[in-house]
Amino acid sequence: MVYFILKRMIQSVFVMLTVAFLAFSLFRFVGDPITQMTGVETSVEDQERLREELGLNDPFVYQFTRFTGDMLKGDFGFSYRTRQPVAEMIASRIPATLELGVVALIISLLVGIPAGVYTALKPRGVLTQTILMTTLVGVSIPTFVIGIMLIFIFGVQLGWLPTFGRGGTVQIGGWESSLFSFDGWRALLLPAITLGVYQLTLTMRLVRAEMMEVMRSDYIRFAMARGVPTASLHYRHALANTMVPVITIIGLQFGGVIAFSIVTESVFQWPGMGLLFLESIRFVDIPVMGVYLVVIAFFFVLVNLVVDLLYVAIDPRLRIRDVS
């Protein structure tokens, strides 16, 4: 078990190193950092001196090691565009994106899992067919169109909810949160639904497929033959076994949440990391792009490590090895 976790951690480190390498390559080879940092008036000699000072003439491996070391110390360099430290720029945007992503994920799980269970247990019901058709349409509508539609209906036509920005936020420590004011929640609702819909349909379909598979298994049929109460059969026996593959996919989906948060943030002008990333692409602000990558990969890896721990918690086969 310890070995299992350790192995996953080593794999995570590998993923992080690769992403760091990507970010470094971006920084180093896409455009010349020196011309980006200096103006036209800087002389060639000054540029050369700066190059030497920054160690850009050092061997490649050495540069990469230093780059990684700096990252570990929290030194992420400076933005080409705003000349601010990238660390600060990203840090100030993290709360907005995380809150959006987590609320969206919760929405998708709260609706997706029960819907998946229901449609698996009553595969021929009318409601099931309706839900399945609706979700099929759901995965087919691009996220940005869902956002536009929600804005159009609830923002423009009905005027119930704000159509952009975070509304009122509350400062807690250094964390700017939407979750502690009514206004903040109003602003959060539409973007979170927009982001959650796609994940919801995926979750539902996955839970349904896994649940149907489990319901056919021998141990469920044996439990039925023993007259185990239906509720226990469905939830304690079947759903629990469904969860093992489902949480894996949910871990992987976290990547999707982050990716689509870029779109959602763009539609709702939500001041999160995604919006920052879009701006940085538009202005070819390489350091911000690179750091964004590393931060996203870090969250992804973190979530998947948690998933691995959950795995161990759920499945005794990973916890207890000995067969006697």
Partner: peptide
């Protein structure tokens, strides 16, 4: 997988 579709596409575009 850690860099999902949209992100990859945006990144390549940026590069």
């Amino acid at each position: 997988l850690a860099l999902p579709a949209i992100l990859t596409a945006l990144l390549i575009d940026g590069i």
